[in-house]
Design a protein around this nucleic acid. Sequence first.
DNA 1: TGGGCGCCTCAGG
DNA 2: CCTGAGGCGCCCAA
Length: 948
Amino acid sequence: MSDKSPQQASQKAPLKKGDRLYLIDGSAYIFRAYHALPPLTRKSDGAPVGAVSGFCNMLWKLLADVNDDAVKEMGTPTHFAVIFDHSSETFRNEMYTEYKANRDEPPDDLKPQFAMIRDAVRAFGLPCIELQGYEADDLICTYARQAEQLEAETIIISSDKDLMQLISEHTIMYDTMKSRRIGVDEVIEKFGVGPEKMIDMQALIGDSVDNVPGVPGIGPKTAAQLLEEFGTLENLLENAEAIKQNKRRESLIEHADNARLSKKLVTLECNVPIEAEIDDFVVTPFDHARLIEFLEEMEFTTLTKRVRTKADQAGADVPEPSAPAAAPAPDTKPIDRDAYETVFSPERLREWMARTRERGHLAVDTETTGLDCMTARLVGVCLSTGPGEACYVPLTHGGEGLAFDDEDVGKQMKLEDALAILKPVLEDASVLKIGQNFKYDMLLLSRYGIDVAPIDDTMLISYALDCGINGHGMDELADKHLGHTCIKFTDIAGTGKKQKTFDQLVIKEAAPYAAEDADVTFRLWQALKPRLVSERMATLYATLERPMPAVISAMEREGVKVDCDVLSRLSSEFNQRMGAHEAAARELAGEDFNLGSPKQISDILFGQMGLPGGKKTKTGAWSTSADVLDDLAAQGYEIAREIVNWRQLSKLVGTYTDALQKDLNKDTGRVHTSYSLASTTTGRLSSNDPNLQNIPIRTEDGRKIRTAFIAEEGNVLVSADYSQIELRLLAHIADITSLKQAFSDGVDIHAMTASEMFGVPIAGMDPMVRRKAKAINFGIIYGISAFGLANQLGIPRGEAKDYIDAYFEKFPGIRQYMDDTKKTAMTHGYVETVFGRKTHTPNIKAKIPAQRSYAERQAINAPIQGSAADIIRRAMIRMPYALARSKLSARMLLQVHDELIFECPADQANDTRELVKQVMETACDPVLKISVPLVVETGAGLNWDEAH
DNA sequence: TGGGCGCCTCAGG
DNA sequence: CCTGAGGCGCCCAA
């Protein structure tokens, strides 16, 4: 054993005589569990988890079940570690390239489980041991031999015969699947020789699976007989001449070298340069909360229950683990910008990757030439393996001709070299990648051929925890959680027209800024991730947040095809008509003015022309909004009509027909919006650059814009939208029997509301009456106020109040729901959706009544809007998998709150519509039963207008 | 002169 | 109620 300083040693528990060291052969277990256990998938997202489940059950039994056969027989572990193979290449390949060469790739539904199993080990608070270039067996050998010298008992959990050479008086194996102990006697019984002869035995018989040659014609029986007679392999080979049987003798002589090589291959290395020591493996009390978080995330309900029961018995703090001792509070060094390394050589980068694999996690941040990740180029990569352990890897600084002098530019490693080193780690299922707004980096890296997985996103963790309390940008989070002020990008790159892109920065100056981002991201992860458990948001995060970056970045990268010619034609049509309105308005005003300026309009109308003003704006000016101008137009003031018409067209040109053409990506010929995953307080997404969630539909002119969104040749657009989802959720959440019945019967919900409120029959109903009821239904969802409804319907406040009263009279359950929701917000400070997403409502206790009412309306709206958002998220997360399973090549392109747009080959339109509908309608299954049917309507067409 | 920012208005759900 | 975008107009710095 290497010697350690006393301080370090005192924190450990040295292995001593009589202690029991359990070593799990993790890699072998994974394969066996995968094949032996029935396939099991996680309900929420269909991820395969069978092997993980088996693994967790085994760990739990060994560590916590006093009645477990193995533990009863072997005794409770004092030290415990799980050992994994690191990669397929080991030192054995250097002496024999064919070694394990015919191993197949693990099956697709096993691969993702490797990472999960490592997560499981960590969740159990156990060390996860692996080392580059060595097999798990070598590490096990090294540790077992060390334990042997200390006369401790070693229990190797495996049934691999390669490990049988380790068996001795103090070292045994245990096969948990067969509940079978394998000691010296068992080896002799099975192979006819003792464990000390196992190496020679294997060298003779070989192993076809691992490509160990052995000696042809010699099997276990013969080998045992020969070893019995000659003692050792070497002795046997030297005296092979003496063997009587012709075949056997000749084969041994001919293949003596193979036998010797085989011996080397099967001999385990017991002097591996280990990094973790046995003393570190001491079993410590469970962090039940951490384990439960993981198990819940995996949706292992039975085991979760078991652990909970045990935790309760032990009086453990679940779900509120608070004791500082329990919380992993690593002594975090303060942020030091000068301490970061700038990585120039592939060798150094490889070393960072080696450290990453040891840690099992890596914070990643990319630096690029711009904010649009569909056009930006990669400039550098920032990495952090732990707090303060960060580096910057500059790659393409000074890209296109140097506008400055930077001696470091020439030292940068080649982009493709760096990517080749990074890719295996970024894609390694056993290394967790951590990012802040990771969707951006993932999309960028996907353009460079790297699919980052698995991931955590600090922005989304913050969103799950603190929605409604603060924003979720890195600078704000760093300030709040780390008390650290980040360097702003504009501080180093300047601002405005002269702002530099990242590649134009001097590396020495850029590096601290860049590396800091990765460091901060890592520290934020440390600060925020444990809260998911203690605040019981782990499942929400795992099911509704964590999967989003991958799904959304795929959509963004896909983009949607836009026909520029259609947009141009519309632009000129609208411009022409605007000209006519503008001329008419000026004629009527008798002077020139800017129709785009509310201030000038107000001056003309309410000043010079003396028209009656309606509403005032927040700042006290007369409003010129559309409904005010509509009123004036209705009173016969033509100028108001002209202004309204001009404005509408101006909006369409400025925001859509002209603007969208600029958003066309030159490489793809498509428009790629960006979805913001954490900018709403309800769980909705928002779309920007350009916003494709507010493409007009309500007016005829506006709808023409939708005809410019088209499908690729031979394809169609498929649209699928939830019908009335928010009202349905209101009926479910507030538990309104009559509403639920109406939805089950499939009646016209607004007409039904009108009929109830005003006592008129549905058949032959006045459309105006229905319109009122519809406005009220929407008002209810928004946490109605008489003021708002009056505004909406253009009726006096008193009348609006009468309607609301009539509504509450007919649906008393809704008033009840509203009161209850306000109460919840008051007592808890938050409201939540059907899936447990929280929106915090800090203003609910505001002194100012207007502020408080506003907060109350938010509180009423958030659970409804948010539940709908959760449901469509679930559908989106499942969609890629569902499409693939149905062998459909449809791509999901857009989300507009209750609608999803796909593009698919024309001949798959019907199948796609059917599948999409099915997935969306069953999105709540199986965790939640909604008491109203969710109905999805679909359409298909050559453009978005036709598809809708 | 030009960048930054608040305001108003309006597109969608 | 939840959003994002564009234009205007004001303020401030260079």
